[in-house]
Design a protein around this nucleic acid. Structure first.
Lengths: 144, 144
DNA sequence: TTAATTAAAGTCAAAAATAGTCAAAGAGGG
DNA sequence: CCCTCTTTGACTATTTTTGACTTTAATTAA
């Protein structure tokens, strides 16, 4: 599985966030660019395409001396807006896995279900299915 | 019956999928076209005619730098009768559990999903959802 | 304190790298 | 000769990579 530069940077950042333990990191754009031998705007590109609110992240930054980019993984999960998309539900599953409310196998299986649904169902049905899954997982995890 | 180029490419891809051991491969359309000395759209043609959901495959792709086409083989069960009800899917789950293709936790969780669906969705949506689950489980179990 | 300098990060659009679409032309089998 | 499936290629769409130029903040010099 060959990966593009953007993919590698994305992975790198995600690992940093995981390791941080706080769901939040601060990086220096130019430093990261240096690490990957690319132009700084490449980092901006990765952040703006892969760490969006849709994907479950919030970013802040500051220019000038000692500038930084802060990326925070948001917790929001299943509330408010009743339209759930595939990325949101995947983020939800990621969270459950991380909190060990489901194991690796269950996680993998559910990802298959979500992917199949995303592939084979119309948007409205997808939404219903995702609602059902969220609902069922709520019951399931609280029954443990 | 002489084998067409399309047939050869189809076979080639199927062998790759077999050898992958994971029921899934990623190829670069242009690279494959190069291998067979044909135009890239020939590859698209093969994929869209021989690797459909009907045939038991799902495909995803990405354009741009390091783009790819990912083909995943799914495992279809009895596609003839396309109406599945709650009892049938539960029987299916029981079977998977008995054959230890899924564990107790996964079983329990899926039952929650099925029950939630049975309670919260109209018949037609239920059916679609169950199809998706069957499909996803086929993929999942064949990936173990 | 203010102005200049330096050190970041942001913007935007062009260029490059892929994949997709669609319709016309070609090739076999009935 | 027709009909269907295959092959091609021109054109489109998407994603990544790059770089010139802009904006903002901190630091230093006057």
């Amino acid at each position: 599985m060959r990966r593009s530069l953007a993919d590698k940077i994305e992975q790198y950042i995600k690992v940093l966030i995981e390791k941080s333990g706080a769901g939040q990191i601060e990086i220096q754009r130019s430093e990261l660019a240096e690490t990957f031998s690319c132009v700084p705007s490449q980092v901006t590109y990765v952040i703006s395409t892969r760490f969006t609110q849709e994907e479950g992240y919030v970013t802040e930054s500051r220019r000038g001396g000692n500038g930084f980019v802060r990326i925070t993984r948001t917790q929001w999960i299943n509330k408010v807006d009743n339209s759930i998309n595939r990325n949101q539900i995947k983020a939800y599953l990621d969270d459950l896995l991380k909190r060990q409310l489901i194991g690796n196998q269950e996680y993998t299986m559910l990802v298959y279900v979500v992917e199949s649904a995303a592939q084979g169902l119309a948007a409205e049905q997808q939404n219903q299915l995702f609602q059902v899954i969220i609902n069922a997982l709520g019951k399931y995890t609280s029954s443990l």
